[in-house]
Amino acid sequence: MSDDKPEKPADAVEPPQPEAPTPMPKPKPKTPNLALRRLRTGFKPSRGQAIVAVVLALVACVAVVQVRVNRADDGYQNARREDLIAILDGLGQNTRRLESEIADLEERKNSLSSGADKAQTAREQAEAQVRTLGILAGTLPATGPGVRITLNDPQGKMTSSNLLDAIEELRDAGAEAIQINGSARVVASTDFVDDPPGIRIDGQKVNSPYVIEAIGESHNLSEAANFPGGLVSEVTGPQVGGTAEVTELTTVPITALHAPEEHRYARPAPSPTK
């Protein structure tokens, strides 16, 4: 009741004032002061002030705590049951969707990795084939066991057919790569032309002594050269009158290369098996 005291003087003038806001033209200087004056007097300490202070402190404290709790929790604590069920439902759907996505991606990954394996295998096979074909086509150097046949033809009587026979006998005996004089690689398209005193191989002049190097089973190859009526007997025979020497070697390096020419007419046809 002590707070009534400061109010009293104001209250004494009050009775006319509560109606003051409605009839505006009434005494103006007094009316605006009233509420403000009460505010100002309200700053004086009193019991009511103390009670209000305590209550306000309580409210402020709780409000702050509530704000903090609201900010701290993840929103599930205050959520009601149906909200939680909705949230759970959404999460379940999300999970199912993500799981199916995982399965999809796994499947794609598997197919991709098996595809990559396939591609890798295919590439390895292709590379192996390139190596094999490169030796066959004479575009790659080769090394391996074989023979070296040295034919000496002092009279220049050897013909291209002698050499061709020699090559064919060596091929029959399983020669896999052949070069002549270390400069002419013998491949499928190699041609031999007489050009006395020598032979032109693929347009390249080759002279005596002819050194034929061939990779293959060395014993078979030397047998093929030495058999009666074969290369050696022909070269050493009366027709040519030269000398022949056959050496079996454990390593014959074949370094001469055949420059492949672009085919003018033949084109690879699509393979029906692939």
């Binding site: 309200g42 300490p45 002030q49 103390a50 209000v52 202070a53 305590v54 209550v55 306000l56 402190a57 309580l58 409210v59 402020a60 404290c61 409000a63 702050v64």
Partner: peptide, 9 residues
């Protein structure tokens, strides 16, 4: 005092 109480709270 009321304002003080608010701040204290």
């Amino acid at each position: 005092i009321a304002v003080l109480g608010l701040v204290i709270g």
